[in-house]
Design a protein around this nucleic acid. Sequence first.
DNA 1: CTGAAAGCGCTTACAG
DNA 2: CTGAAAGCGCTTACAG
Lengths: 380, 380
Amino acid sequence: MAPLRPAAPRVLRITDLSYTYHGADRRSSEGACVASVRHEGPAESAGPARPTSRDVARRAGVSQATVSLVLRDKWHGRVSPGTADAVRAAARDLGYRPNLAARSLRLGRTRTALLVVPALTNEYFARVHTGAARVAAEHDFGMVLYPSPELAAPAPDPFDSARAALDGVIASSMAVEALAALRSGGLPLVMLDSDPEGSEATVNLDIADGMRRIVEHLVGLGHRRIAHVTAAVDSWTFHARARALSDALSGTPAALVHTERADLTVTGGLHAASRALSVTPRATALVCDDDVLAAGACKAVRRLGLRVPGDVSVTGFDDLSLATAVEPELTTVRLPAEEIGATGMRALLAVLEGRPPDTGVLPVSLVRRDSTGPPAAFTG
Amino acid sequence: MAPLRPAAPRVLRITDLSYTYHGADRRSSEGACVASVRHEGPAESAGPARPTSRDVARRAGVSQATVSLVLRDKWHGRVSPGTADAVRAAARDLGYRPNLAARSLRLGRTRTALLVVPALTNEYFARVHTGAARVAAEHDFGMVLYPSPELAAPAPDPFDSARAALDGVIASSMAVEALAALRSGGLPLVMLDSDPEGSEATVNLDIADGMRRIVEHLVGLGHRRIAHVTAAVDSWTFHARARALSDALSGTPAALVHTERADLTVTGGLHAASRALSVTPRATALVCDDDVLAAGACKAVRRLGLRVPGDVSVTGFDDLSLATAVEPELTTVRLPAEEIGATGMRALLAVLEGRPPDTGVLPVSLVRRDSTGPPAAFTG
DNA sequence: CTGAAAGCGCTTACAG
DNA sequence: CTGAAAGCGCTTACAG
């Protein structure tokens, strides 16, 4: 690890640190010391303790219950408008924020959902998060993210790690072995892009249709020998891609001539594609499980002195921004990532309200770009 | 929005839904109904209520306080080993998990930190998260992520959105206007890659040194006319990059001949680089604020019928996986993303414990690849 | 229209 | 070695 160049340490203001301390031995300080200081004068605003609804009540001259009623907007017909205004003014003056731990404890729910994704390094999951968080916000829900460090790692425990109190969980594209840990949480669970047999509520992408469209496209261009670069990741979505590809090829004049597993990185794609292209007779098209693998595959083609798509066509999956960052731009399957996140959050809300979740399969589309073309020998 | 193809809705098991209900009117059900059922027999295991420490105590035949002592591992010398074993067995049998909201309320802290990042779409932040979460886990801290939806959006309120109770906040590369919202939370705050004047505790990257190395490299290759493709993002790190570039160029034979602002996307980089290259006399090297911009810049060069690096050299910043996904692979500055995350979390832990945080500046390094070379006309 | 009280589930001094 | 009790800050029936 590189050495740290020290900079002059900064002194923290006591107000910044105070939050830390007031919990440690709150019992003594709160009851005996701080509370009394607070009553004695200006220490109130400079004091270390975070204001509670009691403080707001005291300042507004009302009971603590009235503060709660007003701030939760349940005061109409129960508290006079003048009193309500006084409470809001006091809360504003003190910078009051309700203690969410206390609220959660009282209510038994938190209006917070956890999104579990295999890794943050993929733009796809960032988009899933965006869609889910948008719907969550529309329903006054918070959204917390747990990146399960490694798909291959021993089953993680998101309920220990993301310590937030949670109402429910959305998990996307998890490894098979991670599912048990998720289920053990006992929370309502919605799975995205996962085995529909394995879970109560699932929102999926039409992976099979995506592969079918790729095959149609390649076969239509004249390709007859196709190799598959699969992601060496043990999750349903990649198993589904492999199955869908071989299903889609049956009944066409084209054949799957080789399959090669790859680490889900550019380098992984490069190595796997190199191996796949060393098989003779050589495939004229490489179907890759992911845009990242496709980017690596394109590099492999060039390192062999061949061209994309002149000698070898390459297809991706996902339509990440990477697909248009490389040249040639990738022909790929666009996954509606934001939409699956949004639909997943809606399904979770339904489960939480006791309604049947609107699970289903979201359509995908083929994006034709420049990494595919007719095979060199093809005269059709 | 594309239509949803409906799938057969699945019926959820009651045990999955139960968690939802037990909070809504827990008072009546818990006190009157469920608790009594629980005592009457097998309803205990099938019952909807999540077990509490009281349930564990009842099963183990001890007081509720003893359960807490044992499970928090504070029982040595206070509880007999046999009793401790009985408590652990009972907890296991019931699948007991402590209610974190209650624990947080009681302790006044949560051992949870919030990481605020401008966007999830960037691999850099994923790596920062990885580093921070690793250190957090080593100290039995949880880590929760809040992607501030848009750098340019009205100041977000992470404390409303990430509803978890939090002990502190780490914020990376935030827009200037987002800082006020962060500070208003009143929580201990560590800033990463941010203005050291603007915050109490800051961990930074040696951005200036990175730019200096790029300039040395380019000037050494013979470049004399350099253009800068800046990210149109109002955050300290990009202001720092601009300042560092012009500082580094002064005193060299090279000049900054043009600056062009770009949206932080491949397309943004492409457009900005096109504009920059239309200025005459043309720059022989494009210094880009980010690898994503550099990828776009390379495309722009080729669209003008020029080659990288033969006619125009291009440099990036960050060393994302994108840097080696494109061809030619990018010469760029590698930022120790995981390390800044880890150092930031260590600084936050220090603040929380009242120690002076180990803030500082982390070194960066230049990675020479294939997107830079001597300028065409150079005969040095 | 307003207040006093109960209780969510936990942790920890304190008393035995 | 073990238990009874207080209290974290909040929400919501309930009584006036």
